[in-house]
Structure formats: structure tokens, C-alpha cells
């Protein structure tokens, strides 16, 4: 793949996708959710003696949960039509009449759409940066800005992963309907139902394990890309009172107890393993889709 061709392709795709109304609707939704969540937390009465810098960070920690919903949805909305839409409309024939390899078209689209998601995420984060000082104050501004910047970067990674998943689905699909059904199923399985599925799978082995064992259960739980994101996000919140932020999907206590009982922390429960998990989703989907797209009949 040639850098120049990738850049040309990505820029075209960005220009095209960023003008889509759907992108702006979901971005506005993201900003709105950020504002509402911030407001809700500001209404909580914190006990005396909570350090000033903790509350704004607690807002960020709490926001990681809505982010695991809204960012994948934005990415899937922005990406699911990226290839199949051009294929069905015939504009792909214009692209393939130009000196692009199919791989350059595919990767260029992932880059272009990731940039669109980046803009969308930035809109949401700007809303947070504005609203958090208004609703809860900043406490320690330096710490807060480092934390929100860190969360922004980690969230970009989540956006990039789901964009790659969406563009991959789009490259694999033969029809728009297939693409939309598949991204919906993907979101449902990887986010909505993942924990439930893991719990179901655990049933024959005595259900959700108790403290002292069950590393395998947490391993499976954190293989979902959104759960992996919450693990990566905890890189940002070091020395924070909540030991495992964002893992409250099936009872924070139970998981935390398992983690605590597994000392030292096994490698597959580290944040860096979660980073690898996220990358593996993107790379795996991308390689699969590229292998099929390379030889697909696009006539």
C-alpha cells in the first residue's frame, strides 16, 4: 500500500462522510448524553472530605459507561455503508477506475471514517470540557485535563476499532440490508449481550465463579471490545478510589473480589492486555474483510 494513495482515499472519504447528516445527529446525541450525565452526577451529595479533584474524575469514570454505548453506535452508523453503499450505487466503479489497489480503498476508508469518528468524539469531549467545570467545578485542573485527554485518546481507540469493524462488515456485505443486520448483530453480541452470554456459558461450570478462582471468566468477560475499553480507560484513572472502574456490568463487587483474589494480577487482566484485545478485534476483522474484498466481484 502506498501512503499517497491511502491519504488521497482517506481524505476523499472523510470529506464525503463528514457531510452526512446522520453523523451530525449522532454526534449531537453524544454531546447531549455527555451533558446530561455530567449534570446527573453533579446532583449527587458527596460525603465531607472527598478531595476536590475526585468529583470531576468520577464524572469521567461514570461517562465511560455511556461512551461504550454511543461511540460504537456512531462508528457503526458512520461505517456500515462505507463500502457496500459505494458498491451498490456504482460509485465504487469510479474508484476502481483510478490507480488504487483494493486494499488501499479499504484501509483508506477505515482511516477516513476514523477521522470522522474522531471529530464526533471531539464534539462530545468539548461538551464535557465545558460542562464539567460548570456543574461540578474542576478541583485540580491539571490532573483533570490530563485525565480527560487520556480518556479522549482511549476513546479514539475505541472509535477506531468499531469503525474498522463497521468498514469490514461493509466490505464483506453484498447488500445494504446484510450490512445493517450484521453491524446490529455485532453491536448486540459484543456489547449488549456479551456478559450475559459469558454467564450463560459459565452455567455448566457452576455459574459465575466466586473469589479465589474464575480468572478464565474475567478473561472472557474482557474479550469484548467495549469491556476491554473500560479496562484500558482505567489506565487513565490511576490511584483512583474505585479500583476497577467501568467493570460494573455484572456486579462490581463480584468481579473486584475475583481480581483481588488473583494476586498477582494475571497478564490477561492487565490494561495492556486489554489494549491488545482491542487491536486484535480491529486487525482480525480487517484482515478477514480484506481477504474477501480483494477477490470479490465488484462489477
Amino acid at each position: 500500500m502506498r501512503d499517497h494513495q491511502l491519504a488521497v482515499m482517506a481524505r476523499k472519504d472523510f470529506d464525503d462522510a463528514v457531510r452526512s447528516k446522520a453523523v451530525w445527529v449522532v454526534s449531537a446525541l453524544f454531546a447531549l448524553i455527555a451533558i446530561l450525565a455530567t449534570y446527573r452526577i453533579s446532583q449527587i451529595n458527596f460525603p465531607e472530605g472527598v478531595p476536590a479533584g475526585v468529583v470531576p474524575k468520577l464524572v469521567l469514570v461514570t461517562l465511560t459507561n455511556p461512551i461504550t454505548w454511543i461511540v460504537p453506535i456512531i462508528a457503526l452508523v458512520v461505517g456500515y455503508m462505507s463500502v457496500v453503499g459505494e458498491r451498490r450505487s456504482g460509485s465504487l466503479k469510479l474508484l476502481l477506475g483510478l490507480p488504487f489497489e483494493r486494499g488501499e480503498i479499504f484501509v483508506g476508508k477505515i482511516l477516513g471514517r476514523t477521522a470522522v469518528i474522531g471529530v464526533s468524539i471531539a464534539v462530545g469531549f468539548v461538551a464535557m470540557v465545558v460542562m464539567i467545570p460548570v456543574f461540578v467545578g474542576l478541583g485540580a485542573p491539571g490532573e483533570f485535563f490530563v485525565a480527560i485527554l487520556g480518556l479522549f485518546v482511549v476513546t479514539l481507540l475505541l472509535g477506531a476499532v468499531f469503525t474498522t469493524l463497521a468498514v469490514s462488515v461493509s466490505a464483506l456485505a453484498n447488500t445494504r440490508r446484510q450490512a445493517i443486520t450484521t453491524v446490529f448483530a455485532l453491536f448486540f453480541v459484543t456489547h449488549v449481550a456479551w456478559t450475559g452470554v459469558i454467564q450463560f456459558l459459565a452455567l455448566p461450570f457452576g455459574g459465575v465463579p466466586r473469589a479465589g478462582s474464575g480468572g478464565w471468566y474475567l478473561l472472557l468477560s474482557y474479550l469484548s471490545p467495549t469491556a476491554a475499553y473500560t479496562r484500558v480507560a482505567s489506565l487513565v484513572f490511576t490511584n483512583f478510589p474505585v479500583p476497577y472502574p467501568g467493570i460494573a456490568m455484572d456486579g462490581i463487587g463480584q468481579r473486584a473480589r475475583i481480581v483481588e483474589s488473583l494476586q498477582p494480577t494475571p497478564f490477561y487482566l492487565t490494561e495492556w492486555f486489554a489494549v491488545l484485545t482491542l487491536l486484535a478485534w480491529a486487525v482480525g476483522a480487517g484482515l478477514l474483510a480484506h481477504a474477501v474484498f480483494r477477490n470479490a466481484d465488484l462489477g
Partner: peptide, 12 residues
Amino acid sequence: VLPDAYQLYERL
């Protein structure tokens, strides 16, 4: 190439 049954990028 001027292909058959193409479509332009309507937002560009």
C-alpha cells in the same frame, strides 16, 4: 474509465 451504471458522490 467512464463506467456503466455509476453514481457520483452526492455530497461532494
